[in-house]
Simulated scan of single mutants.
Amino acid sequence: MRRIKTMVLWLALTLLYATGHTQQVSNYDFHGAEATLNAYKALYILNQSDDKKIRAVVRNINNALEDPRLKGKLQVELIAFGDGVEIYRKSNRYDTLLMGLKSKGVLLAQCENTLRERKISKDELWPFVSYVPSGNGEIIIRQYEGWAVVHP
């Protein structure tokens, strides 16, 4: 008897929740999150050399910078390490994309560990690139500083 009562109660609660939940969803007009803070910070990670991936990361950054909720409130850093170093090599001709980001205030950073391990000279990279001791260290520090970490 007790088991039947428990099952009936569970069924009644399930139906009550499902009915109320369905009604809430249909009446709810969702417009996305509101940007209520004065400033936001995002660290974009690039550790791949694929051209499509590089262009997608740049497009993602530009989309975030153009989001009307974040416009004028967003600080962005792009950290490259590992295979991501290819975005900053002069030989790969991403300078137009990078200058577009730089003109919007994006910090362009490269991991020095990658350069040392791969024996890449800073002369092979664009002169407007900044350097950090390690990409992973940059991610850890930025995350603890409250930056959103984005790895598209």
Rank of each mutant, 00 (worst) to 15 (best):
E117M: 14
A39I: 09
C111P: 13
Q143C: 09
C111S: 12
N60Y: 08
L108E: 09
V106W: 15
W147L: 14
L43R: 02
G20K: 14
G146T: 14
I45K: 00
A33D: 04
A148Y: 11
T114E: 08
D29A: 07
I4C: 05
Y94W: 09
S49G: 11
V106H: 15
Q23Y: 14
G105E: 11
A18C: 12
L46C: 02
I87M: 00
L46F: 00
E145D: 15
A56E: 05
M7Q: 07
R142E: 02
E86A: 04
L15T: 11
Q48K: 03
K119M: 09
L97G: 09
E117N: 10
H31M: 07
A80M: 00
K41T: 11
A56C: 12
L43E: 04
G146S: 11
G82Q: 00
A35Y: 03
E124S: 04
S134R: 02
Y17W: 13
L16K: 07
P133M: 02
R116L: 10
V149S: 11
G82T: 00
P127D: 07
T22E: 12
T19D: 12
H31Y: 08
H31G: 03
M99V: 01
K71Q: 06
G20C: 15
T6M: 14
I140R: 09
L65K: 04
P127V: 01
R59M: 11
K52F: 08
G84D: 01
R55C: 13
I87G: 01
G82L: 00
A42T: 08
R69Y: 12
Y88P: 02
N136D: 03
Y40D: 09
G105H: 15
L65I: 11
V150Y: 09
T22I: 04
T96G: 06
R59K: 12
V25P: 00
K90L: 09
L46G: 02
Y131P: 07
G32Y: 05
Q75F: 05
A42G: 02
I79R: 00
E66R: 14
A109H: 14
Y44H: 05
G100M: 13
Q48S: 02
R69L: 14
Q143L: 06
L107D: 15
K52E: 10
I61H: 08
T36H: 01
Y44N: 01
M7H: 13
R55V: 15
I54H: 02
R118D: 13
R142V: 02
C111M: 14
A42W: 01
I45Q: 06
K5A: 10
A80Y: 00
L78E: 02
A80R: 00
Y144C: 11
V106M: 14
P133N: 07
N62Y: 13
L125H: 04
A33H: 04
Q110W: 10
S134G: 05
S91K: 05
Y144Q: 14
